[in-house]
Design a protein around this nucleic acid. Structure first.
Length: 670
DNA sequence: TAGTGAGAGGTTTTT
DNA sequence: CCTCTCACTA
C-alpha cells in the first residue's frame, strides 16, 4: 500500500513572519531551522551556531502556527533548555515559553508522575541520587553476606556502576562485566543476585534511581501502545540536543516518542562526544539515519566563535583522532595572537601565572565572567583556588562534588524526605544516627519499626525504644516531625524548622561546622522557590545545585566572577579567554584512561571541547608535576612528568602556538 | 552496640 | 588525598 502523508503543518506562502530567518541565518542554519517535518540530523561543529539554530527553529515552528505545547526540546541540562526557551521568547513572544523542555531524566519524571501505575509504580515515587543508590546496594550486599570474607569483592560504587552501565548500554550484566571489569567476572552470579534484589527493593519502596527513570519511561512507551500513541501525538515536534552524548536507551526512547509522526531533529557533533562513561556512544549519531529512514542531514561548518588561529589549533587537535570526522571547521574571524603555550611551570607558578594574567585581561576591559579556567578533574583546580582566594579574585566553580552531595545538606534533606515519605528507609538511616547513642544497628531497627507501622511516626516512641540513652532525642524528633507533617506549611518553613532541630546535632557532628553553616542558609534561600516538598526533593536530585547557585548572597549577586569549570561542565559554553591547566600526561589524559584506546580517544575529544570554548584567547599550560599520578611514567620511584600526548602529537605545533616562558627572578615577568 | 583511630587502597567526568 | 574497613575500647 502506498503511504501518502498529508503535510498540513507547512506554513502557507502568504503567512507573515516577524523574524527574517533568511537574513539572520546562513543557508545551512536556515535549512535546519525551517525544515518542519520528518527526521532531520544536524551535525553542528563547535561554535557553529547550533543553539542559535535551535532557537530560531522553535520560533519558526511557533510562527508557523504550531502549538508550542506540542514542541519538545530535550537537552543535556535543564539550564540549557530554559536558556533556549528564554531566548526564543525574547526573539518572538511568550508563546515560546510554553514549549516543553528539559533533560531526558526530567522529562521521564514528568511523564512517570502521570503514568507510573502502568509500569507498576505509585506516582509518589522518590528519586534517589547516586549516593543513595549506593547505600541501598551496600545494605543488600551486607544482608547477603558478600564481601566480608572475600577481599576482592567490588565496592558498592563499582557494583552500582556495573548495573548502571548494563542499563544504559542495553547490554546484559555479564557482557559489561567481561568488557569493563574482567577481574570480577568470577562473581557474576553474586552481582546478578545483588542487581535483582536492588531492583526489587526499589520497586517495593517506590524508589527510582536515575536509570530507572529512563528504564520505566522506555518500558511504558514500548509496552503501552495506547499511552505511547497519546504521548507521541502530544509532542509532535521533537528536538534532541547533544545527540552524540545520548546512550542507547535514550536513542530508543527518542524513536518511540517520534513513532507516530517521525518529526524528530537530532543535533550534535560526533567530535564532541565526552560521556561514554555514562553509556553514551557517539555512534548513536552515525546510526540516526538508519534508525530514521529518510533522514535529511545538514552540516554546520562555519565557526562563529573563535579566531582563525584558535581554530587552526583545534582542527589540529581533532585531526589526530582515529575515527574519521566528517567536517573541518572554518572561521572568518581574524585574530592577532596565536594560542599561548607555556611549559614547565611548577604548580604554584601555574596558579600564579593564571591569576596574574587574568587580572591583566580584565584590565583590558574583559569582565571576569567572560574568562574561564578549564581542567580535566575538579581537584586539579585546588592550588589555583588557593591562589585566587589569596588575591581576592572572586570565582565560581562548576563540576566536581555537587552542593547537594555534601554530607550536611544530605542530612537536612533526609529530614525532609522522611516528612515526605516516612517509608524512606534510606533517609531514616541518615537521620537517626545523628543522635547520640544511635548507631547503624538501632537506626536499622527504628527505621524498620516505622516502615512496619506503615509510616506511622508513633513507632518512634514505641515501648521498644523507651528508657534508652537516645529516647529523649527520639521523642523530640517525633514531635518535630509530627509538627512538620501538618498541612499548609511551605517547604521553606519546613526546612527552617528542620534546620533549627538539626543545628545542635550538626555542631556536635562536624568539627568544621562553621564552614558548612553558610550552605544551610543557601539551601534555605533556594527552597523559597518551591511550592511543594515533592518538587523540591525531586529537583535536588534531577538538577543538583552547582557553583552558580550556591553561596550567592544577595549582596554579591551582581558581582562578576571568574569561572572555574571541569570540561564536562563547560560543554556548550564559550568565553572570551580560556585557560586549560594541567596538560600533563596522567592528568590529561587521565591515568586510568591511558590503557584503553577508545578512552584515550574520548579524552582527546574532551581536549577538543575545552579548546573550542575559546573566542579570542587560549592559554595551554603544562606544569611540572613531579609527585602523584599513578605509575604510568614511573621509573626509579620518581615520576617524570610529560606534556599531554595531545600536545606532543601535534606535528606543526610551533606554527600554531606562541611559546611563552616564565622569566625567573624578575619582578614583572610579563 | 557506639564511637574512635589506624591503615590501606583507589583516585574523573554527570543525570 | 580521601574514604572505607577493620579492630579495639568503653
Amino acid at each position: 500500500m502506498k503511504k501518502y502523508k498529508l503535510r498540513t503543518d507547512l506554513p502557507s506562502g502568504e503567512k507573515k513572519f516577524t523574524v527574517d530567518y533568511r537574513a539572520e541565518l546562513n543557508p545551512q542554519q536556515f535549512q535546519a531551522a525551517t525544515h518542519l517535518t520528518g527526521p532531520h540530523l544536524v551535525i553542528a561543529g563547535a561554535g557553529s551556531g547550533k543553539t542559535r539554530t535551535l532557537i530560531f527553529r522553535v520560533a519558526f515552528l511557533v510562527e508557523s502556527g504550531i502549538d508550542p505545547g506540542s514542541i519538545l526540546l530535550l537537552t543535556f541540562t535543564r539550564r540549557a533548555a530554559q536558556e533556549m526557551m528564554r531566548r526564543a521568547a525574547s526573539m518572538l513572544d511568550d508563546r515560546c515559553s510554553r514549549v516543553s523542555g528539559g533533560t531526558f531524566h526530567s522529562f521521564a519524571n514528568f511523564i512517570l508522575r502521570k503514568y507510573a501505575q502502568a509500569v507498576g509504580f505509585s506516582s509518589q515515587f522518590t528519586i534517589v541520587d547516586r549516593g543513595d543508590a549506593e547505600d541501598i546496594i551496600q545494605m543488600i550486599r551486607t544482608d547477603l553476606g558478600f564481601g566480608s570474607s572475600n577481599k576482592r569483592f567490588p565496592k558498592k560504587g563499582t557494583i552500582n556502576d556495573v548495573i548502571s552501565r548494563a542499563v544504559n548500554k542495553c547490554l546484559p550484566l555479564d557482557r559489561v562485566l567481561m568488557d569493563d571489569y574482567p577481574q570480577f567476572a568470577a562473581i557474576l552470579p553474586d552481582i546478578e543476585k545483588i542487581a535483582g534484589q536492588y531492583r526489587n527493593y526499589k520497586q517495593a519502596k517506590g524508589i527510582m534511581d536515575y536509570d530507572d527513570l529512563l528504564i520505566y519511561l522506555h518500558r511504558l512507551l514500548k509496552e503501552q501502545a495506547e499511552i505511547r500513541k497519546h504521548i507521541s501525538h502530544t509532542y509532535r515536534y521533537i528536538m534532541v540536543d547533544e545527540f552524540q552524548d545520548t546512550n542507547r536507551l535514550q536513542a530508543e526512547i527518542s524513536a518511540l516518542l517520534a513513532s507516530e509522526h517521525g518529526n524528530i531533529m537530532a543535533v550534535g557533533d560526533d567530535s564532541q562526544s565526552i560521556y561514554s562513561f555514562r553509556g553514551a556512544d557517539f555512534r548513536n549519531i552515525m546510526d540516526f539515519p538508519s534508525l530514521f529512514p529518510g533522514t535529511v542531514i545538514t552540516t554546520l561548518e562555519q565557526n562563529y566563535r573563535s579566531t582563525r588561529p584558535i581554530l587552526d589549533l583545534t582542527n589540529a587537535i581533532i585531526e589526530n583522532a582515529h575515527e574519521k570526522y566528517s567536517k573541518k571547521l572554518f572561521s572568518f574571524i581574524d585574530g592577532q595572537g596565536k594560542p599561548v603555550f607555556l611549559e614547565s611551570l611548577s604548580e604554584e607558578e601555574q596558579a600564579a601565572f593564571v591569576a596574574q594574567r587574568i587580572l591583566e585581561i580584565r584590565e583590558e576591559g574583559v569582565p571576569l565572567d567572560r574568562i574561564a579556567v578549564l581542567f580535566r578533574a575538579s581537584w586539579h583546580a585546588n592550588e589555583l583556588e588557593l591562589e585566587l582566594k589569596n588575591r581576592g579574585i572572586p570565582y565560581v566553580k562548576y563540576g566536581g562534588l555537587k552542593f547537594t552531595e555534601a554530607a550536611h545538606i544530605k542530612d537536612v534533606l533526609a529530614f525532609m524526605r522522611v516528612v515526605y515519605n516516612p517509608l524512606d528507609e534510606i533517609a531514616w538511616r541518615r537521620v537517626l544516627p545523628l543522635m547520640e547513642g544511635i548507631g547503624p544497628t538501632y537506626a536499622t531497627r527504628i527505621a524498620a519499626a516505622v516502615v512496619t507501622a506503615g509510616g506511622e511516626l508513633d513507632a518512634l516512641i514505641g515501648p521498644e525504644f523507651t528508657n534508652k540513652k537516645f529516647s529523649e532525642n527520639l521523642h523530640k524528633l517525633y514531635k518535630a516531625l509530627s509538627h512538620l507533617r501538618q498541612p499548609g506549611i511551605s517547604p521553606a518553613e519546613q526546612l527552617q524548622k528542620v534546620i533549627v532541630f538539626y543545628t545542635p546535632f550538626f555542631t556536635i557532628h562536624y568539627d568544621d561546622y562553621r564552614r558548612r553553616e553558610d550552605d544551610l542558609d543557601s539551601l534555605l534561600r533556594i527552597s523559597n522557590r518551591y511550592q511543594t516538598l515533592e518538587h523540591l526533593l525531586t529537583d535536588m536530585v534531577l538538577d543538583p545545585l552547582d557553583g552558580s547557585q550556591v553561596g550567592v548572597k544577595p549582596a554579591d549577586k551582581d558581582e562578576e566572577k571568574l569561572v572555574l569549570s571541569t570540561i564536562h561542565s563547560a560543554k556548550g559554553l564559550e568565553w572570551h579567554s580560556v585557560f586549560i591547566i594541567h596538560l600533563v600526561d596522567g592528568y590529561f589524559p587521565s591515568a586510568q584512561s591511558i590503557a584503553r584506546e577508545e578512552e584515550v580517544e574520548e579524552e582527546r575529544r574532551l581536549f577538543y571541547v575545552a579548546a573550542t570554548r575559546a573566542q579570542r584567547n587560549l592559554y595551554l599550560l603544562v606544569p611540572d608535576l613531579e609527585t602523584r599520578a599513578w605509575g604510568y611514567y614511573q621509573s626509579y620511584g620518581h615520576l617524570i612528568s610529560q606534556p599531554s600526548r595531545f600536545i606532543a602529537e601535534i606535528k606543526n605545533l610551533s606554527d600554531l602556538v606562541e611559546y611563552w616562558a616564565i622569566e625567573p627572578e624578575v619582578s614583572q615577568p610579563f
